[in-house]
Design a binder for these strands. Sequence first.
DNA 1: CTGAAAGCGCTTACAG
DNA 2: CTGAAAGCGCTTACAG
Lengths: 336, 336
Amino acid sequence: MITRRSTITDVARLAGVSIKTVSRVFNQEPNVRQSTRDKVIAAAETLKYRPNQSARQLASNLTFVIGMLYDNPNSDYVTEVQYGALQVCRENGYDLLIHPCHADSPGLIDDVSGLQHRVDGFIVLQPVSDILPLNQLLLENNIPCVRVSQRPFIQFPWISVGDMAAAEQMTEYLLNLGHRRIGFIVGHPEHGSSHDRLAGYRRALERRDIAFDEDLVEQGMFDYESGYTCARNLLLSAERPTAIFASNDPMAMGVLSAAHEVGIEIPGQLSVAGFDDSPLARHAWPPLTTVRQPITEVARLATDVLMQKLQGRLKGDFDHRLEAELVRRASTGRPN
Amino acid sequence: MITRRSTITDVARLAGVSIKTVSRVFNQEPNVRQSTRDKVIAAAETLKYRPNQSARQLASNLTFVIGMLYDNPNSDYVTEVQYGALQVCRENGYDLLIHPCHADSPGLIDDVSGLQHRVDGFIVLQPVSDILPLNQLLLENNIPCVRVSQRPFIQFPWISVGDMAAAEQMTEYLLNLGHRRIGFIVGHPEHGSSHDRLAGYRRALERRDIAFDEDLVEQGMFDYESGYTCARNLLLSAERPTAIFASNDPMAMGVLSAAHEVGIEIPGQLSVAGFDDSPLARHAWPPLTTVRQPITEVARLATDVLMQKLQGRLKGDFDHRLEAELVRRASTGRPN
DNA sequence: CTGAAAGCGCTTACAG
DNA sequence: CTGAAAGCGCTTACAG
C-alpha cells in the first residue's frame, strides 16, 4: 500500500489558503497573520507534510547540500573534518554529501562537474584542494567553495594551519631536551603540509646552527607501514638518532613498533614525536608527544565561511591560519 | 560574470532535435539513431551541458542519492563502512549523504523524516537500526532501506555479522592456550553486538564446564577510556585474570595501556584480545589478537542490496550473515 | 497580510 | 526512430 506523500497543494486546500501562504510559513517568511500560520501548521501536521526538496531546489536553484571533496578516505583526519563540518551544516539546515576522489584520477574533473547541480558549494580538503584543473573548474563555473590548504589559489576563501611553526616548535623542544641527532620522517610528497613540516624542522636546526644531515631524513607516505620502514632504516644505521620526529601519528606509531621490536626503550633510549594528535596518539604506549592540529576548528570554520558565502554575508577575501599546538606526553624525554 | 548553465533546451536547439531526444541520449535509452546521438553529444559538449539533478529528481521522483544513518561518528567502524558503501554507490551512479544521529535524540524522527525527499533509500547502521520508532517511520513511509543489525525487524533486508560465534571462537582459543581466568569487557549496552559477544564468551565457558564468574566481567562503553578503567579493575583485583578479552579494539588498547602502566608484561603475564581488527590493532604494541569483522564487505553488501531494491531486482526477503574471523597476533600466548 | 500566474528543467505517457 | 504536451511541487516576481 503506497500512500502518496502530501504536497503543498494538499496543505493549502486543507488550511483554506493559497500555496504561496503555505510556502511563506515553511520558509519562515514574515507577513503571515499568526492565526493563518497556526492553521497552516495544523494542516501540515495532519497531513504529515514534508516539503519536497527536489521541487524546492528546482524552483530556487538552491540545494541546501554542500559537498566535501577529499582524498585518503580512511584517515582519522577526514573523519574528524566530517565531524566538524556536519555540526555547522546541521546548525544551518544543510546536509553533507561526501565525495572522496583520487588526486591523480583522469575522471576527476568530469566527476566533480557532474556534482555541481547537487550541491550549493564545496569544502575542498588537501591535497585535492591543490589540484590546479579542479580549482579552475570550480572557478569557471562560479561554484562557491572553501579550500583547506597550505597554498592559496586566486580568490577562493582559504584556511591553513601553521604547520611550519608547529614543526619548528617541536624540533626546538627536542633540541631543548638535549637531542642533537633528530631523525625526521617526511610525509606524503603530494601534501603541502609535508613540505611545511620539513621546512619547520630545518629552520629550527638552522636557528641553532646545527647542520642539516640528509642521512637523518627519510621519505614516508603518512601511513604506519612507511613509518615503520623509515624508522628501521634510522635505527639500524651506524650512528642512530636519539629522537625521531614523524610527520604524522600513524608514522610515529610505526616508529614505536620498530623501536619496541629492536628492544629500544622509549623514551629512555629514543624519543618519538608525531603530528596531528589523532586518537591514536593518546592510546599508544607510551602516549605520543605530538602536535595538536585544530582539525575540528578548521572544519567548522571552513563550513561556516562557506555558509557565509552562500548567504552573501562574506565580504572580501578570506584567508585564515589556525595555529597548531605542542602536546607533550610520555614518548619524549632527555637523551641518555 | 555569471554565465547561465545550459539546459536541455539549449542542447536540443543546437542539435536541432527535441528535448525528449536529448533526454533519451542522456538516459541511455534505446531508439535513437547513431547519427542523432552523435549530434546531441557534440552539442552537449560544446555547451558543457550537465543535466540538472533537481529537475530530474522532481520529474522522476528519483534522487540517485542514498543516505547513511549512524551513531558514533568518530569510529573506525563508520569510516570503513563509508568506504565500502561509497565504492558501490559510485559503481551505480549514486552519491552518498551521511547523516549521523543520536539514538536518544528526541528530534531523530523529525530529522530523518525531513531527509526522505533527499534520498532514494537508507543504509541504517547499528545501533540506529535498532530504534523501533525509526524503523516504523521508514516502514510507514515505504522508504527502501537496508539494516545492518544483529536483530531483525519485519521485512527489511537485514545484514548481520556472526559476532557470537566469533566471540566464542576467541574464548576457546584463549582456553586452548591454557587460560582459565579470562576477563571480559562488555561493549556499549545499546549495541546488539555487545550482548552477542558476551553470549559467545559465556557459551565457550559453558562448553568447557568452566563456571561463569561475574567478577571477571566489566561493563565498558566501546571506547579506550572505559577499556582502561575496566582493565585496571581487573588487574588490581585480588586474583587477577591471565587474559582479558575486550569487546572491541579501542577498549583492548586501553587494556594494553593499563597493563603497561602497572608493569605487566604482554603476553608473558597477560594475554589481551580485541574485536574488529581496526587499523589500531595492527599498529599497537604488541600487535593485537582480534576478530576481523568483514566491515567493508558488510557495507558493500548492504549497499548492493539497497541498489537491487531500488531497481526492483530484489525478490523476497533478504537476510544474510557474514562470518567474522580470528586474527592471531602477538598479544596473546600461554599463561606463565 | 494574501494570492494568481508563470516558470524552474527535467521525465512520463502518449502519439505518430 | 522522434516529438508535442502535460506535469512533477515548489519559488519568484508581481499585484492587490
